[in-house]
Amino acid sequence: MKIFDLEKHSLREINQSLQTSEITEGKKIYEIRNPKGSHAVAVGLKAKINVNIHGSTGYYCGGMNQKAKIHVFGSVGPGVGENMMSGDIIIEGDASQYAGATGHGGVLLIKGNASSRCGISMKGNDIVVLGNIGHMAGFMAQSGNLVVLGNAGEGLGDSIYEANIFVRGKVSNLGADCIEKDMRKEHLVTLKRLLKKSNCSVKPQEFRRFGSARTLYNFEIDNVNLY
């Protein structure tokens, strides 16, 4: 186990150490202490390593992650796991705005609540939120799965493409072109997999699925007078 302390080491020092190839994959655990809301903690990791962060972080924690498993024992600021490519990010507390935005792969698990714009423009990653999510979640989300055990705020899935949104609680209202869709077998399989991975005992059948009505995909000539 290697311990970094943000009161003693600079952020750049820590991130460079975690990003370098001398790291032995899968064997070591890296501990980061005293993040105290620092920005960009454990970003750009490329190896299959375990990083435990003790405390709350600021903007962009775990951004661009590849392969690494990052576990935050605290809450995170805006843009956690932004553009993550693979690996796992687990947040014990809450997440601020645009959690998991533009991610291409991997799983982001938020055990508390996530605020606005969760999963905005997601491109293939999976996001599981055990609490509630704020407004405009899944805005323009292209692919991947956003799973919410609690409630969803206003404008859910506005202008969504082909991502799936699964909500177990209440939805305040749906954004433009987002509709409730049938829960088919393959969706239940996906949900079961993500819930199991997140150690959740709730049943996939308790969720509703939301996705694109696909009415914004092509220009409707009848709407020309609206512009």
Binding site: G37, G58, S96
Partner: peptide, 25 residues
């Protein structure tokens, strides 16, 4: 729209506001 960040913290002794959690640590 609430895109400008804001964090509140409350204890028995105070209520604190910060643009970021960093301000409160």
């Amino acid at each position: 729209i609430a895109c400008k960040p804001a964090v509140l913290a409350e204890t028995d002794d105070y209520v604190a506001f910060g643009s970021e959690y960093r301000a409160l640590t």
